[in-house]
Design a protein around this nucleic acid. Sequence first.
DNA 1: TGTACATCAGTGAACGCGCGTTCACTGATGTAC
DNA 2: TGTACATCAGTGAACGCGCGTTCACTGATGTAC
Lengths: 227, 227
Amino acid sequence: MTAASLRARVRAEMTDEIKAAARRHLATDGANLSLRAVARDLGMASSAVYRYFASRDELLTALIIDAYDSLGEAAENAPDTGSAVDRWLAVCHAVREWALANPHEWALVYGSPVPGYQAPTDTVEPAIRVILTLGRIVQDASASGEVEPGEPIGGRLGEDLAMVAERAAPGAPPQLVGRSIAGWIHLCGAVSAELFGQLNNTIEQRRDFFEFQMRGALTWIGLRASS
Amino acid sequence: MTAASLRARVRAEMTDEIKAAARRHLATDGANLSLRAVARDLGMASSAVYRYFASRDELLTALIIDAYDSLGEAAENAPDTGSAVDRWLAVCHAVREWALANPHEWALVYGSPVPGYQAPTDTVEPAIRVILTLGRIVQDASASGEVEPGEPIGGRLGEDLAMVAERAAPGAPPQLVGRSIAGWIHLCGAVSAELFGQLNNTIEQRRDFFEFQMRGALTWIGLRASS
DNA sequence: TGTACATCAGTGAACGCGCGTTCACTGATGTAC
DNA sequence: TGTACATCAGTGAACGCGCGTTCACTGATGTAC
């Protein structure tokens, strides 16, 4: 380990500590967390944070990227065995469990947009990891015939979906991809509904209801339980 | 018109103006809007606002209740003719169109919870107007047999759903109510996905895709196009 | 109808606070010869 | 190996700002007799 890389490592560790403290502040302050409060927690001058992040927004961006990456990793590491339905459901549960474990980071990326904050383009790649994971399942299922193709979709929507299919599940029929995107949206909606309190005092069997919903969505999407 | 009720009317008008100004501020500041900024917009001293709202949180609560009521009214006023499927879709489109017209109010009630804000109980009644509207459609469809009842759901989730059914669609089978709640959650998720930017650079035919999703959800929910 | 009083909307100053960001600086750590 | 210099993390004061809320007050509007 050369001296230079040691300095780099210390720097990386400090960067991580700042992000960790900022992440803790998401719980109390949401997306308008305070740089000064973060610095205070770490016992350092607020100006010192500027050695690591050029501005509050840049720190926020780092948190957003980390959240997407962490969620994406959770989705990618979901058990990848069994039928397409099994695999899809495993991803759904992995996403939900990650969100329950990291509710404020979920809110940061899937909640209301932060007013005045414009996400830079380097958030895009981490942002699509979940949907690419689902796309792979759909593509595999389509290749092995574990799928109801369904009615083709014409018009401009058909073109939109064909372009998405090309990027996320090449070879799969666009209408199937469209139904899969709908499934992903339902997944996000179900997680947000649970996290943001829409089910309070109504449905207490959260996990069961979640699975019920995702299985229901799958019947329409048209993945089959076995090939 | 007595003098007293005139004073009351002027007061109500001023209250409305404050809320209108605050609503405008939702666009730029989100849920952490500033009382002082609102007062400034109206050309009044910031302390004057306290004659109308005891605190910033109380003003926020008023905005939340108004948003729920406005959305609820839009849903209730959706065209109420044709089959259960027609009526359900009409409500979905009414909700989406309201949200597109009032994106910041949608974010206020269906976006990430405001940290530190606890909604008082008088937000509950306005909050459930949409789902009660959907419940009425399901109840009617169930009564007239325009419905696939589907497999009953046992266990605790079944009990949860039976209780919801009792409140929102008495007489309808709990499993149908469960699928309907899932449809409502998908509706909220689809609107949030569109509004919060999840479809950016992906799907441009927003209305078509929305309708595609809602129709798809309906095939699983099991409302029939005609009795 | 006229007058004394009560109610109420609105003012402006103040309290005490926190914020993001900049800047000149100190001192430690690394680099080049 | 030793020394002169450059890099870099971190400090602390300052700038200029905005915030929610309170309080004693003024004047207009309504009420009771």
